[in-house]
């Protein structure tokens, strides 16, 4: 990774459907370059990935058909850092509680519950303490949001609300049930992109990052 790439890593945003531009704005604010991921080829040269909010069933179906889902799984299993919010958290979970089968990326040792707080009239916003990003609490916007029902030993829960885990991380993944991209608070995006930078600094020059370099 060149010095420029290390300071301004290239983060892909899954752009099948959902709140894509909001994440692009947030990533730009913390010094990352962004590109949209709609097909497997779009994964080339990425230093990290964001899976945004949207409808997880739409993500799974559209990305599944084109082979993108398999390609995502392979890259993420291979250590590509990823941030998932709301539907993005669902896509990264190893399992869904109480729901039917739906195509996922999987790989993170958590089980989530979809629409856990109820339908849209029960969607809410509230202050959520996220100690790893410091004080003050983040303003959590929960929209037909999931929660984390259970998490395995590889996973650190980094925020709780109403007695439920609502954000977590493992070695390469950060997930949140709420939407920091809808607020001006960039601390979670900064934590993610800083992690990508650190990983890049400790890494060899990889062939696909050369292909993707601008």
């Amino acid at each position: 990774m060149s010095a420029e790439q290390a300071s301004r890593p290239r983060i892909g945003v899954l752009a099948v459907q959902g709140a894509v531009s909001e994440h692009e704005d947030a990533l730009a604010d913390v010094g990352a370059r962004t590109s949209r991921v709609r097909a497997a080829d779009d994964l080339q040269g990425l230093d990290g990935l964001v899976i945004p909010g949207g409808e997880s069933t739409t993500f799974g179906l559209v990305a599944g058909e084109s082979g993108l889902l398999d390609a995502l799984r392979a890259r993420i299993d291979d250590g590509l850092p990823v941030l998932g919010t709301c539907a993005g958290m669902i896509m990264l979970a190893d399992g869904i509680a109480g729901g039917g089968p739906q195509p996922l990326v999987g790989g993170m040792d958590i089980v989530v519950r979809r629409n856990a707080w109820g339908r849209q009239v029960r969607s809410f916003e509230a202050d959520v303490a996220v100690p790893v990003v410091g004080e003050p609490p983040m303003r959590g916007i929960f929209i037909r949001a999931p929660w984390i029902e259970s998490a395995g030993p590889s996973v650190e829960v980094i925020a709780e609300h109403g007695g439920h885990a609502v954000a977590a991380r493992d070695a390469t993944r950060i997930v949140a049930a709420f939407h920091p991209e809808l607020t001006g608070d960039r601390r979670l995006h900064r934590m993610f992109v800083d992690g990508v930078r650190e990983r890049g600094a400790g890494q060899q020059h990889e062939e696909d990052t050369v292909v993707g370099a601008q």
Binding site: A15, V16, Q17, G18, A19, V20, S21, E22, G53, G54, E55, T58, C86, A87, Q120, S123, F124, E125, I141, F142, I143, R144, H179, L182, T183
Partner: peptide
Amino acid sequence: AVKAGLARMLKGG
């Protein structure tokens, strides 16, 4: 934020 936010999640759909 909650009302307009859901529409943001529907984008591209």
